[in-house]
């Protein structure tokens, strides 16, 4: 993938040189090993340290909200635009912001890169048995070097869970595409975990979820990482009416997760970011996934993950199912 990083640098240089953008958002090496953190380059030499590889990366779409002016300010001229590195899942996040009139498509430059799954370092460490010192990735497999022995693991084993159900391998449309389009392999939807929970008895389900919600420390990381949560002032910060009390009792936790799940119903593009950022690893994907599964089944929406102009809950069909 090294060539990808060079291509990116070349493109960014070109963009900065002909003054087409004011900012480029990409990734750079984090402080801890194998961690990739967002990087903001306002000129070319700041962009030099940016890299692209197959390690797990945070989502960049949400930064656009702060970096760009309000939609009402209209289309800015060329040099004020913001370029953003975009994989398929980022693109869905950007689409979400565009559909919600938070940003304007003309104000951003989408630098698209194809991707067929990122590497989960935790899984590699678990297979290796200890913290890997060095991890190199080539076409099919991953070589993890530990203190004593190395291990060659096939990429499929250590790919992130969210990438297994990826619904968009590269951005549908982009201004610049760094690499040719990979075969858009259609991954079938895997709602198996959700069906497992549905099979449980009501009591078991309640216990399972209250156990998860009890761990929640209400840090709102899931809200702040999610592109579907782009309100100016979140309802949980509003005290009048107090939808959610500050006390972290079990019932309040149910309330919090119910409201958050419903607010992203039909808007969540299964990017898995909320699960990644949760400090206590609550399987939020199973909550949003349940609503997405129902929306697809009940209102026969082809792919509820792809943001549509009008949300599924924003319209109706006369022949919606009647039985409940």
């Amino acid at each position: 993938m090294m060539t990808m990083t060079e291509k990116m640098r070349e493109q960014v240089k070109e963009l900065f040189v002909n003054n087409e953008i004011k900012l480029f958002i990409g990734f750079e090496k984090g402080f801890t090993k194998f961690s990739r953190i967002p990087a903001f380059a306002e000129n070319y030499d700041e962009a030099k340290k940016m890299i692209i590889d197959e390690f797990e990366t945070p989502f960049l779409a949400k930064y656009l909200i702060r970096e760009l002016e309000e939609v009402a300010a209209g289309i800015v001229e060329k040099s004020e635009r913001v370029a953003i590195l975009t994989r398929g899942c980022d693109y869905l996040g950007i689409r979400r912001l565009i559909v919600d009139n938070i940003i304007l498509r003309e104000n951003i430059v989408i630098v698209g890169i194809p991707c067929d799954g990122l590497i989960d370092v935790k899984k590699a460490n678990k297979l290796l048995g200890e913290e890997a010192r060095e991890i190199t990735i080539d076409e099919e497999n991953v070589i993890a070097k530990g203190k004593t022995e190395n291990k060659i693991i096939s990429k499929a084993e250590v790919v992130l869970d969210r990438c297994r159900q990826c619904i968009m391998c590269e951005p549908k449309e982009s201004d610049i595409m760094l690499a040719e389009k990979t075969a858009n392999v259609k991954k079938n939807k895997d709602y198996s975990k959700i069906e497992e929970i549905e099979k449980m008895s009501a009591k078991e389900r309640y216990e399972f979820w209250s156990r998860q919600f009890e761990r929640c420390i209400r840090c709102f990381a899931c809200r702040d990482a999610c592109t579907a949560c782009n309100c100016r002032k979140c309802i949980f910060d509003i005290t009048e009416p107090e939808m959610l009390e500050k006390t972290v009792a079990t019932s309040e936790q149910f309330m919090f997760h119910f409201i958050r799940a419903f607010h992203v119903a039909g808007r969540c593009s299964a990017c898995g970011e909320c699960e990644r950022v949760c400090p206590v690893d609550i399987p939020l994907g199973l909550l949003n996934g349940k609503l997405r599964k129902d929306i697809e089944f009940l209102f026969n929406v082809e792919e509820a993950g792809i943001p549509s102009e009008i949300e599924p809950l924003g319209e109706f069909k006369l022949d919606d199912p009647d039985e409940w």
Partner: peptide
């Protein structure tokens, strides 16, 4: 109707 269809299934899913 649409909101109710989702709400009843989701609440059943989290145990109510």
């Amino acid at each position: 109707k649409r909101r109710f269809l989702l709400a009843t299934r989701f609440m059943n899913y989290i145990g109510i």
